[in-house]
Amino acid sequence: MKPIASVEEIRDKVRKLEGRVSSSIIEELEKKLIEIYEKNGLYEEELDRILDEVVKRYESSIIEPGEPVGTVAAQSLGEPSTQMTLRVFHYAGVREFNVTLGLPRLIEIVDARKKPETPIMEIYLEDDYKYSEDKAKEVARKIESTYVENVAESITFSPFEGVIVRLDPGMLEDKGVDVSDVVRAIEELNLGEVEVDEEGHIIRVKLSEEYMDFTKMEKVRQKIASTKIKGVKGIRKVIIQKRGDEYVLVAEGSNLEDVMKIEGVDWRRVYTNDIMEIERVLGIEAARAAIIREVKGVLEDQGLDVDIRHIMLLADVMTWTGRVRQIGRMGVAGEKPSVLARATFEMTVQKLIEAAASGETDYLTGVPENIIIGQIIPVGTGLIELYATLGGARKHKEEG
């Protein structure tokens, strides 16, 4: 067996596959073969066998002309999803958070819900912060929303003293908040005069006369309790996880745009499971990638192995118009150009009446509409249209 002499020899052989396999496969194959060569060495016969196997597998995975890829994708995603459990699981071993997984999460994604039931963010930190727990805690404090009720022992009211907020010194320290921060947040509400006792642990809000009845005072008490002192809007809780050498923040709630601006956050690696927010902040391609990642994650969590190309097709169908659409009557199914295809899904009579009123034409280019009228469907051999000149055939027979 003859050993490979250089990296260039590998590159030359791999580049001969151009036109036979896709450029992305050539790039990945070249990279991996060079890694193997530099680590263990490589023989010519081994390289040839690897390249032949790659071409063979690539050609066997190519879709045949006329294959109903949509139907196959729908079956490949729909059938395994019936095996899913209808429960909500804990998130990646973190007991503080619950995240919707399994079938409820899959339905949430394909329905393109405006907000997920349990939004979660993964926040990675920059090099100066990710190796230090103290610095990670510092960033977490900036992100986590802290409200007056989080740092108060009690919040009460009386007709004579107004609203009385008794602060918890331990919670103030834990949340990284000063008494002055609490006072400032309450003063911004403009409810009345704010006084702090000598020890600084009791804040009295002397209300103006318009609030001096029990119903209004209770509303004011609740308003003060829910007043935000600091943090990012929508982020209810942040915990710190150690993954390998680095610290990562996991947040309950989602606010991609504001979190990306926080000092110490690696904005290139921030992730949220809120697909509509990803579309709004980062664009439709990012939303497509998020749909693929989320669906793949849901299926893998359940131990289901579905080819990534089916998931990619689902994501493409949901996003190709430039916005995220649901798979349903308010989205993909309801926006089909065929009247009969729309009528087969839901609200049959209504769809037919609407089409008749607007004078629509159905050109019978899809599958459902051809099944309805009993024609051959445009799938597989049904895609082929044969034309023959009968007169020419008769003339040729007579001459023969």
Rank of each mutant, 00 (worst) to 15 (best):
A152M: 07
K175A: 13
K135I: 04
T118A: 14
G170K: 14
I120T: 11
D174Y: 15
A136I: 08
L103P: 01
R166F: 02
Y147S: 01
A152L: 06
D168F: 03
G170C: 00
D174N: 12
T118K: 15
I164E: 15
K137S: 07
K137Y: 03
S154P: 03
D111M: 09
K137C: 00
V110S: 02
V151I: 15
T156D: 15
M121Y: 03
E173Q: 12
G162P: 13
D128H: 11
R105P: 00
L103E: 01
I107E: 09
A140D: 08
E133Q: 11
I109S: 07
I107H: 03
E161L: 11
E108T: 04
V139A: 08
S158D: 14
T156W: 04
G102S: 10
T146K: 09
P169I: 01
Y129P: 08
E173W: 01
K114Q: 12
P104W: 02
E173T: 12
K175M: 10
L103H: 05
F160V: 14
E122P: 00
N150L: 02
K137L: 12
G170Y: 07
S145G: 14
R113Y: 04
R166S: 13
I107G: 02
K135Q: 05
S158Q: 05
K114L: 13
E161I: 01
T118W: 07
K142F: 10
K115R: 14
D111A: 11
P119M: 08
K175L: 07
K175T: 05
A152P: 06
D168E: 14
E122D: 00
I143C: 06
E161Q: 10
P159L: 11
G176I: 10
E133D: 04
P119S: 09
I143W: 05
G162W: 13
R113S: 06
E138G: 01
K114S: 13
E133I: 14
S145L: 13
P116N: 06
I107D: 04
V110E: 01
R141K: 15
Y147W: 02
R113C: 00
Y147P: 00
R166M: 10
L172S: 10
G176H: 13
D168P: 09
P159I: 09
L167N: 09
A152H: 08
L125E: 05
L125T: 05
I109K: 04
R113G: 00
Y147A: 00
V110C: 00
Y129M: 10
A152W: 05
E144H: 05
E126L: 14
E133R: 15
G162N: 11
Y124N: 13
P104D: 02
E117F: 12
S145P: 01
V151Y: 08
V165F: 13
V151T: 12
S132I: 11
Y131N: 15
M121N: 03
K135R: 15
P119D: 09
V148F: 04
P116R: 06
K135C: 02
S158F: 02
S154R: 14
Y124G: 00
D128C: 07
E138P: 00
D134M: 10
E126R: 14
G162K: 13
D128W: 10
D168V: 07
L167S: 08
K114V: 07
V163K: 07
I143A: 06
E173F: 03
K130A: 06
L125S: 06
A140W: 09
